[in-house]
Design a protein around this nucleic acid. Structure first.
Length: 181
DNA sequence: GCACCGATTTGCT
DNA sequence: GCAAATCGGTGCG
């Protein structure tokens, strides 16, 4: 099975965010199914890229398909995949498929549901840090996908009306329930 | 230079 | 349900 080529990501983030649901992500020896994403664009006040390129967000304006990793609240590392220039998709939750022992050791818990059910948890489970920012480490493989649910993005204070959070309906590995489910 | 705040998680009440 | 932990980016003087 061949992964999506980098050119596949060179599209608006909301489109990529929806299309990534259900796909298989491989990072080195670790693998997981994408069950929850969020889209951010350059004309989106909630996006780090809003206002143009800067030192921290430079990866968002770089080649599509590469990683954009940023520090959140001074504690966590959050993982995005870069799309069209200035756009990125935040990976919010994954269903672990391979390398669960490594993830469990890093997370300090055994429960599969607690390994990758949140942006910060993914960063910790995958051992991400500043070295991963702008790196070509992500491989997404096509996979069958069930129904996709949408809703408002989590944890932001601006542009809260954009329904750019996407999830795999009924998944037990989401970071939170979607409104109305 | 300094104060405030965020695309979060966790533990305690 | 709420506050702490923790720090680089951002805005203002």
């Amino acid at each position: 099975m061949t992964p999506f080529p980098h050119a596949w990501f060179d599209r608006p983030a909301p489109d990529v965010a929806r299309d990534l649901i259900g796909s298989r992500l491989e990072v080195g020896p670790l693998a997981a199914r994408v069950v929850e994403t969020e889209a951010y664009t350059s004309d989106d006040p909630a996006s780090h890229s809003f206002g143009g390129p800067r030192p921290r967000n430079r990866a968002m304006f770089g080649p599509a398909g590469l990683a954009y990793v940023y520090r959140s609240y001074g504690i966590h590392w959050c993982l995005n995949v870069v799309c069209r220039s200035g756009d990125a998709v935040l990976l919010r939750a994954l269903e672990p498929l391979a390398g669960l022992e490594v993830m469990a050791r890093r997370r300090g818990t055994e429960a599969p549901r607690a390994l990758c059910s949140g942006p910060g948890k993914i960063g910790q489970a995958f051992g991400l840090d500043a070295a991963a920012d702008g790196a070509d480490i992500l491989r997404f493989h096509p996979a069958p996908r069930g129904p996709v649910v949408t809703g408002p993005r989590i944890g932001i204070t601006r542009a809260t009306d954009r329904p750019w959070r996407f999830g795999s309906e009924g998944s037990a590995f989401l970071s939170r329930r979607f409104p109305g489910t």
